[in-house]
Design a binder for these strands. Structure first.
Length: 857
DNA sequence: CTGTAGCATGGGT
DNA sequence: GACCCATGCTACA
């Protein structure tokens, strides 16, 4: 290539040539003009070997050992920086996952005009000033050295400017550098990088500058087990160190490797938070990854930590696929209740919206195409509402997308951009999937304890374990007493948190309350004793606790002896076991120690189909005859998968309220050690026990009486209704809902003693329906059930109250009063758990306790 | 009556 | 005290 330049750009070159060719691209955007010989060497990849052999900065490929002149612009594209430290030649890198070489430098226009001045300015500024200074190029690549004289380590007179993306700057290096005198700064930074003792502790001022140590970033950058957040192929964003030389300003690019090459082989991987501190906060750009800064001058102020993208390797891989597109994680947001609600409006963080989404001047906004991780394209309406002289940006129509990603409140949506296409990518992350500390709790490690590389594992562990989930974090605090964990910037407000917690509980409890009703029983041969507290009789099992067992069918043997039928979990055959046998929740034929002939699944079933059918309707009666037929009814079949959960809880002692230790339970005034009464067993989550079926305590007796009255009234009313014209559609709906609730209540109340007794004694017509449908047509919507939530005097109080799929069994006023009276010792939380959560828990509790307001009873 | 759109409010930062 | 933003409120279809 011809050129007007008469001198070869290679200062080491003494040749003159008539033929000029293009070499590497200079920072100015022009290309180095090389003589033919130098150009050939360059094109052959032998430039550095030829001219730079005496220069420092040679490093070996970690894989093949090939020497590469790192830190030289000429060889810049021939290697990649490894996350764990070291370099790899491009050939090896391509073999091992890394897809692209160090990206090119950004176009010249992204550099600030006068580099030395810029550096000078920066050296005088604190981090805060930098952070708030608006757009800052994604990397400072000041003039450094030319290819012929790489003596940066000796000639540095201007400090390193560390513009690492959320990595090193978070360790305070940036500020420390800028605060110190150039020489000292260089030395310090060098030392820190070299000895791997970047301090994690940050002064408060740094936090004010939004330099918070995020636990997610506490992976030690100096250990090989560092787990990069971003793909390793984007090493340019990982670290950007610039070394300015006072002697030569117009020299070409000084890549990261130039610095690294001057350093010992310190593994540095600092590019996790591309869009965060220096990426987002300092520049407001978040464009570091792709080396482009946005040309527009919109607001790029600091972004709250909770919006920093915490995108994972997997996600990025998923987004990018095998393409060489560069992904720019923009921001993420934890879905609030309203975001995830039906309205389908995602409130966008203002700064994010303004920074990364198109400028909109009208509230109507514009449609925005967003692609999800599966490649499906969605079109949302990106718009804003005027709000207090400001704007509130929303993304409308996200519901289908959210649902498609199966996200809910508390989960996180991430926004990235695919370059160079500029495509917006929306991803989702379940709250439990990857800890997103910034979303919920940001954890700052204060002090030097956690700063050494040796703490890396601990920090990693923290990262792994800490989640937005509060209690998990508490665990961490216990595990890591040396760390001061500071919560801040909870993105979930109380309501959202509650929502999420309740959702979680709901999932669990929806299973458990049904299961519990069938599975919790008194231990064998244990007759509960009872005592009265404040006029209410409580039942307790001395020195023992209720157990969780597998549902069984009670029957009578040929000899007239009472037996149980239990179904094998594997082969589903029914096996006969003694009536007093306590069958574990996971029971298979091989556990059948009572009948060795049928201790294998291959053994024939003793029960004939006819016999089984005879018994199964009883199961369909569900709660009515639970003791006699506590088998697999529809509800239970649905819930059967939750058996394991429940059983595991019990086994692991997590279900303290069921079978675990009595510690940490609510205690009543007469509590004494070992007390296992229903109050003491009352777990916060509502996995309470129930009275035994044979219980004839005052409470149960009263309950039976009360239910009898209720049943009589309802039957009477039903008869009246049947004589009336068919109800309207809305009434039908209500009736249906009522029946649905009834079914849930079945499960809830199902096995209660009073229930059973009542069904046997007082409501003989109920609970003998052959099919569920028949039951629906039954004259009594509450046949065979006791609903403590229903006041006999307010029998119309059957309106559905559940909106979550689980029954909301709020207490009637009288029961509520009673409970509050009887459980004065409950703390507010326990009370809330007991009464406030409308998820069926209360139902279990109430039924379990069979606490009856005697006034109404 | 229900669902939605747009704005207002107020707690939190 | 300003700003952000989650969500409540209300008018409207």
């Amino acid at each position: 290539m011809s050129s007007t330049t008469e001198v070869c750009f290679n200062s080491n070159c003494k040749d003159t040539s008539e033929k000029w060719r293009r070499g590497w691209r200079r920072r100015t955007g022009e290309y180095a003009h090389l003589c033919d010989r130098c150009a050939s060497a360059y094109e052959d990849g032998k430039f550095c070997e030829t001219f730079h052999m005496n220069a420092s900065g040679w490093r070996c490929c970690e894989s093949c050992g090939k020497q590469i002149h790192c830190g030289c612009i000429v060889s810049f594209h021939m290697f990649v920086l490894l996350d764990a430290g070291g370099i790899e030649c491009l050939t090896c890198a391509k073999k091992s996952y890394i897809l692209t070489p160090n990206p090119a430098w950004p176009p010249p226009l992204h550099f600030l005009p006068s580099q030395p001045e810029r550096m000078k300015d920066l050296s005088m500024k604190t981090w805060n000033a930098i952070a708030g200074s608006g757009p800052v190029p994604w990397r400072q690549a000041p003039s450094l050295f030319n290819g012929s004289s790489i003596q940066a380590n000796d000639q540095l007179k201007v400090p390193f400017e560390v513009d690492v993306s959320g990595g090193i700057d978070r360790y305070g290096l940036c500020e420390r550098l800028s605060m110190a005198s150039p020489e000292i700064k260089q030395e310090r930074s060098y030392e820190r990088l070299a000895n791997g003792k970047l301090r994690l502790g940050l002064p408060e001022t740094l936090q004010n500058g939004n330099i918070g140590l995020n636990v997610k970033e506490q992976h030690c950058p100096f250990t090989s087990d560092f787990k990069p957040i971003y793909p390793r192929n984007d090493t340019s964003s990982n670290l950007s160190l610039g070394i300015a030389s006072s002697s030569k300003n117009e020299i070409d690019d000084a890549p990261v490797s130039a610095i690294l090459s001057q350093l010992p082989s310190v593994p540095i991987s600092l590019g996790k938070q591309v869009c965060s501190q220096s990426g987002m906060d300092s520049s407001g750009e978040g464009q570091i990854r792709n080396g482009k800064s946005r040309g527009d001058g919109r607001s790029r102020n600091q972004l709250l930590p909770r919006y920093r993208p915490q995108i994972t390797d997997e996600e990025l891989q998923q987004i990018s696929g095998d393409s060489k597109s560069v992904i720019t994680p923009l921001f993420e947001k934890m879905l609030s209740a309203s975001d995830a609600g039906r309205i389908g409006r995602l409130v966008l963080p203002k700064k994010c919206a303004e920074a990364y989404f198109p400028t909109i001047n009208h509230p109507e906004g514009l449609p925005l195409k967003v692609q999800d991780l599966k490649g499906k394209e969605w079109v949302f309406q990106f718009r804003f509402w005027p709000n207090n002289n400001s704007r509130m940006y929303v993304l409308e129509g996200i519901t289908p997308c959210i649902q498609s990603m199966q996200l809910q409140a508390g989960d996180v949506v991430t926004f990235s951009r695919l370059e160079p296409e500029g495509k917006l990518i929306m991803g989702g992350r379940k709250a439990s999937a990857v800890p997103s500390l910034d979303q919920g709790e940001e954890v700052n490690v204060i002090g030097s304890e956690a700063s050494s590389p040796g703490d890396a594992s601990a920090r990693s562990k923290c990262t792994d374990v800490i989640s937005v989930n509060g209690h998990m974090k508490e665990k961490i605090l216990e595990d890591k007493p040396v760390m001061h964990v500071k919560r801040k910037n909870s993105n979930l407000n109380a309501k959202s948190k509650r929502l999420r917690i309740e959702n979680e509980d709901m999932m669990e409890l929806k299973l458990t309350y049904k299961e519990a009703q069938r599975l919790i029983r008194a231990p064998a041969k244990i007759v509960p004793s009872s005592f009265v507290v404040d006029g209410c009789e409580f039942e307790e099992f001395e020195e023992t606790e209720p157990v969780i067992g597998r549902p069984t069918l009670l029957g009578i043997d040929h000899s007239g002896e009472k037996i149980q039928w239990v179904q094998c979990e594997d082969c589903f055959k029914w096996r006969k076991v003694p009536a007093n046998a306590l069958v574990p929740s996971k029971w298979t034929c091989s556990d059948n120690g009572w009948d060795l002939h049928r201790s294998m699944c291959s053994s024939a079933e003793e029960l004939t189909n006819e016999q089984l059918e005879e018994m199964l309707p009883a199961m369909n009666r569900g709660p009515c005859n639970k003791e006699e037929s506590s088998g697999w009814d529809a509800d239970l079949c649905v819930a059967v998968e939750g058996l394991d959960t429940l059983a595991n809880l019990a086994i692991e002692g997590e279900g303290e309220g069921l079978v675990g230790s009595s510690e940490n339970r609510t205690k009543h005034p007469r509590h004494r050690r070992g007390c296992t009464c229903i109050v003491c067993l009352q777990p916060p989550s509502g996995k309470g026990i129930k009275h035994r079926q044979s219980c004839e305590c005052v409470v149960c007796t009263s309950l039976k009486c009360r239910f009898r009255t209720l049943m009589e009234r309802r039957e009477k009313k039903q008869v009246d209704k049947e004589t009336e014209p068919p109800p309207s559609s809305s009434e039908n709906l209500q009736g249906q809902l009522l029946l649905e609730k009834e079914q849930d209540v079945d499960a809830c109340v199902g096995s209660d003693t009073a229930n059973r007794s009542l069904n046997e004694e007082e409501a003989p017509n109920s609970g003998h329906l052959e099919e569920p449908n028949a039951r629906k047509l039954s004259s009594s919507p509450l046949k065979g059930q006791i609903d403590l939530n229903i006041q006999p005097e307010r029998e119309e109080d059957f309106s559905p109250r559940s909106d979550c799929g689980a029954v909301k069994c709020s207490l009637p006023g009288s029961a509520d009063r009673f409970f509050r009276q009887q459980h004065r010792s409950f703390d507010s939380d326990a009370m809330e758990n007991l009464l406030g959560k409308q998820d069926g828990v209360g139902c279990v509790n109430i039924i379990s306790c069979v606490a009856l307001d005697k006034k109404s009873g």
